[in-house]
Every structure is written in C-alpha cells, then in structure tokens.
Design a binder for these strands. Structure first.
Lengths: 205, 205, 205, 205
DNA sequence: TATGAATGAGGATTCATTCAT
DNA sequence: CATGAATGAATCCTCATTCAT
C-alpha cells in the first residue's frame, strides 16, 4: 500500500527542482528579495524542506551560481575547441549569442548577484574564470602568431571577448526598452560579432 | 557674519552627504543589504535624519541613480559633441574609459541594482537612455554616410558603443581578480577602443 | 492516541488566545498604546507568531470587534426573541445588564476604539447594527400597536434601548470612581431598566 | 520698524490656538494618532513652539480635557440651578441635548481618550464629576421628597441623568449611520428626555 | 523524510522632544 | 521668543531558521 504512492521522490529530484526555482526567482527578483517562502512554493516543497537539502539560503545561491557558471563556460569551451578556422570565430559567436537567451537568467544571477558574495566570487574566479580566460587567451595568441589577428595584447582581447558575451547577454535588458522576457536581439548579436571580428582580423592587403 | 557659522550643517549639505554615502554603500553591498542604520552611520547623521530628506530608503536609491545617470550621460554627450574627426572617436573613448574609474561605483549601482526597480528603470529609459542612443546613432549614421564607417545598422552600433562603456566600466569588476576598487584597466580600455574602432572603420583601400 | 499530545499547541488554540489577550489589552490601554510586543507577551507567543494568524495589528483589532459585536448582539437577540410579555422587558434588561460585566471589556473596545477605524465601523453598522435596530424597532412597534407602550417613534425608542445597554455597560467606567474592573453596578442597572420601562409603558388608567 | 509687525502674539493667544487645534484633532483622530507635527500645523505654529507652552504632548491633552469638562459641567450646573419646576427638567434636557452638538468634540475627547490617562481621569473624578453628581443628586432627592419623582435611589438616578447626556452626545456617532458631522438627532434627544421624564415622574392619579 | 508552526533578531520608519540659531 | 533640523528610542513587521510531529 505504501508502495502505491512513491511518496518521497516522485518528481525528478527535489534538489534540482529547488535549484531551478531558485535560479528563476533570483534572476527575477534578486537574491535578497526572494524569500524562502517563495522559494519553497515555487519548488513545490515545504519551507522546512529547503533546509534538508541546503544548509541555508546562501548555500542555495552558491550552488545555483556554481552550477551555472560551470555549465556556461563548459559549453563555451566545447564550442571553442571545435572551431576550425580562426576566422570562423564569428560564426561561433553568433551561435553562442543567439542562445544566450536560454542562459540569460543564469547570467543575470551570476553577474549581478554574485558580486556581493565575496567568497563565491573568488571561488568562481580561481576555479572557472581564470581557466577560461587562459583558454581564450591561448586561442587568440595563436591567431595573432599566425598573423590572422592583429597584434594586440591577447590577455586583453580575451577579456573583451568574454565581456562581449556578457554585454550581449544582458545588455539587452539594460539598454533595451522592452520589458520582461528580453528577446535576444539577434541583429545586435550579429553586429557585436561583426565589429569584434573586423576589429580583430588583420586587414587583407 | 553670523551667517558664517551654521553649526548644525557645517558639512557641504546633509542631503548630498547622504547621497554620497548611499552611492558608496549600494555599490559595495547592494541596495538590499545596505541597512538604513549603516547608511546613517556612513553619512554621519542619525537614522531618523535620513527620512527628513527622503521619503524612504527607496527614494534615496532613486535619487542616486537618477543623478548618476544624468551626470554620466551628460559628460558623454558633451565629449561627443566636441569631437571633430570621425576617426578621433577612439581618442575620446580612451579618455572616457580612463575616468570610468571615477564613475565605477555609479555604474555598478545603476546597472545592477536598478534592474529590480522597474519604475526607475523605465524612467531612466525614456528620459535619458533613448535620447542618448539617438545622439550616438545620429553620429554613427553620419560617419557611415560619409563612408568613414562601415555600413552597419547604426542603431545597433550605437548600442554596442554604449555597451562598450558599460562593459569596460564594470567588466573589470566581474572579470578581474582584484577586490573592491577596481583599478581601471587602461590597457583594457585601449584594447576595447581599438577593436571597436577597427571594427567600425571602413578599411583603407 | 498519539493525537492526544500536540505539544506546540496544548492551549485551546493560539488564535483565540491572541484574540483574548488583545481584547483585554485594547480595553485596558487602547489600541494605539498596545504594542505588538505586549500583545505577544500577553498571549504567550512570540511577536512574529501574531503575524502568522493576522495580517497586521489592525486585523487583530478588526477580528476582536467583529467577534465581539456579533456575540453581544446575538445574545441580546436571543433573549429578546424569547420574551413573552411586553411588560417583561424589564426583567430581561436586568438580566442582560447584570452580565454586561462579562462583556464590559468588549464594549469598551467596540465603542471607543472602533470610532477611529472607519471601514470597520461601517461594516459593523451595516452588518450588525442596523439589523439589530430593526428587530428592536419591530418589537417596540408591536408593543405600541397593542397599546402597551406609549406612542413614541419606535425607531428612536430602539436607539434609546440599545443606548441604554451601552451606557450601563461602560457608563460605570466613565462615571464611577472605581478603577479597572468596574464591578457592575446592579442597582444602577435596575434603575436604568426601571426608568426606561416606566417611561415607555402606557400609564394604567 | 519692529513695531510694524507685532510678531510674537498677533493672534488671539497662541496657547488657546494650540488647545483648540488639539481638541479638534484629538476628537477626529484620537490622541495617539495625532502627531505633534499635525498639531503644530493645525495651530499655525512651529513644532518646537508647542513645547514652550506645554511640557509635553500629554500636557496638552490634560489641559484640553480639564478645560473641557469644566466648561461642560459648569453650563449644565448653571442651567440646572435656573430651573424652576421639577417637571420642567425635560425642557432643560431638550435644550441641553440640542446643543450637545456644539460640544460633541469635547465629549468625544473627554469620554474616550481620557479613559487611558489614569491620573487625569482621577482628577476629573474628584474635582468635577463627584461634585456634579452631588448637585444632581440633591436636585433629584428634593424632587422625590416632594413626591414629584418616584421614590428611586437618587444617586443612581443622577448617574442615569448624566449618562443620558453622554449617550445622546455621542450615541449618535456610534449608533448612527451617518458619517463625520453627527447632526444632533433632535428627535432622539426628545425621546430620551421624554422617556426619562415619564420614567421618573410619579404617575398622576 | 517532509512538514509548517513557532521563533526572534533585525529592518524600515515614525515621532516626541531638544537645542542652536 | 519662535523656529525647525536633528535625534534615537520605540514601533510594526519580515523572514531565515529550528524542531516536534
């Protein structure tokens, strides 16, 4: 009888449900304004249940951000590693930017809220970001050495490269006139990519 | 003569002191985490005094942001209007970016926190931002018509242009390894300007 | 069986305990002077607990008054409906007034504090009071038609009738020399009833 | 020159202006809800000025109430002393009640708010009320002795007599459906007087 | 294990009162 | 003497966290 209702974990994992709800809530309202009550409700659990899976509210945030960045950068890294031509970066950028929409919530949480959680920011820095920068930097460096890219400081270019995504990611939200679901401005993404690539490539003789 | 001493307000204006303290606090800790107690202490006044000058905590925020954007964009506008050569944009950008440091706190507050204050964001949009975009757009448009800039969508380019400042403004904070007062990465600024300009200019035959 | 022990709520219902404490406190100190801290302490709960049961302090007040009037008038109505002789009103009045003591706190709260809570007063008016007046008025009207009562305006007499209870209820408190729990002045009640009835009855030829 | 503007006391006495404003405010909003700011504004003085005339907010209240009761009872006393026939009480009551409207604010303040100011209530009791009761009691007593009034307990009758005014005074406010300026229900007053007198008088053989 | 009632520290805000001018 | 800016204690209320069931 007690088997008829598999009561404890019928849904695809309580913990992930909480994290998903949290990501959404944090993106929409910010960390501080999201109450554990809302969190619990959104995740479909009781308030007390949150604290069975996470030590406290902050721990939820940390996990959202950690998972988020990891996922984000992994994808970027993968795509970067599969690139063939150094001129084809543009294509990849376009592709990437177009589905930034998919990750826009995550970006919001990671970039905006994470600012104020020092210990988290530092971990992200050392564990994920610097590695990422290293990879992009190496990529650029090679492009420069082969004469495809102009001879700029590859470290800085790598920063600009990543910054570009960030900007395109929620620049829309900040600069745009639109409300809630910031439709990814594809043309904007294209323009960013275009300018970036033109600015980077060695002009053909 | 007896006017020379006004002891209760010897400092350059209580209201401005509050706003300055608020800008700093909001930038460092975020709006929600900054308590009115801290605010008062930082401004060197009693907690109750805050509410003689502002209806509530949010009103302080609104004024910080409004003043901030206004100042920021006015400067930009001024500099833009004084530009002569369309190729000299780079120089202006460099100059602008270098003293973004001065405004970095403001940018943080305006871009990050203002997200969650809808009514404020909207006002900023209509009153400041769209005007600004219009000016830049017109500038780019002319550049394009004169064949100096490549034939891109001027609206989007204007977005990228403003986004650039934003990015350079706190990109440092997000991407950098450094702590609180992010020394403005001048070389980064130069690189951004360089890439942008190269990406924009029509290549010389 | 394990149901017999529900330790966190051994007392007869937290909500009712709060309401009882509130009635007492409001009667003794008035609404404004009663702090939520005192309320919580008097009810034997934490301050925060109040707000699990009531949206805010005012909601507590509203419920005290609503329950109070309802109870008060229901009793009155019941007794009135059970009356047989139109001359026996005096007996009922005496009985009623004697246990006004029991309700004196309620009367205090309802009559004094409710003055300033407009929306509440209005609800009481329409939902309870006017009905009540209607019943009494009809009763008086019949008494007049049968020649038992003198031919006065039954509406006004009904007002006087209800006013009598009110007066006797806390008139003591206002006029008396005694302190807090005003012992119900039975003789006063008798006198009020006596005067009222003599004033109302058609004098025997 | 300083004579052209008789600055300090041009209006008919600052202190009385404050008291008048206070009476009105206390009657409308209650003591606790009336802020010193409102008080000052209503009286047309600066907030600090209040404290030149009264030690604190409570002192203002005490003076309003003391003056009020005094005035109220003095009038009543006067009228009572001018009465000729013991049956003419009704006329006096009618007259009195009709201009209760004039004093309704005062009654509200004295009866409702004064409840919670113990030391004030006690002073009123001993200094004014008990004297008043004594006078009325003596009046009734005489009426009884002369066989004009029925042989009831004169103390209690005196209570009822005063209670009647109170009731008629703000009974309107409580029982009536009307809003702000409680028009004095003359017919109600008449009915009260009528019932009271009929209830009191020895029936004619 | 999951619940949700209870908690109480902490937050924004009000307001009587003071005091330098 | 009148002013009103400054004060800070005290208020109502929120919300992360605990714990008995």
């Amino acid at each position: 009888m007690s088997r008829l209702f598999h009561p404890p974990a019928p849904e695809p994992n309580t913990k992930q449900r909480i994290l998903a709800a949290a990501q959404h809530l944090f993106a929409c309202q910010g960390y501080e304004k999201s109450t554990t009550r809302q969190l619990a409700e959104a995740a479909g659990v009781a308030e007390g249940t949150l604290f069975r899976y996470f030590e406290n509210k902050n721990a939820i945030f940390v996990e959202v951000v950690t998972q988020g960045w990891s996922e984000l950068l992994t994808e970027l890294l993968t795509e970067l590693s599969e690139i063939e031509s150094y001129g084809a970066v543009a294509e990849m950028m376009r592709h990437r930017m177009q589905n930034l929409q998919h990750h826009s919530e995550l970006l919001r949480v990671c970039l905006m809220e994470a600012q104020f959680h020092t210990e988290l920011r530092d971990r992200i820095q050392t564990e994920l970001f610097s590695k990422m920068l290293g990879v992009v930097e190496a990529f650029i460096q090679t492009g420069i050495e082969r004469g495809i890219y102009r001879p700029l400081n590859p470290t800085k270019v790598a920063h600009v490269f990543l910054g570009m995504f960030i900007m395109a990611g929620f620049g829309a939200t900040v600069l745009n006139e639109n409300e809630a679901p910031p439709t990814p401005d594809i043309e904007l993404a294209e323009t960013v990519a275009d300018i970036f690539l033109h600015g980077l490539l060695t002009p053909p003789e």
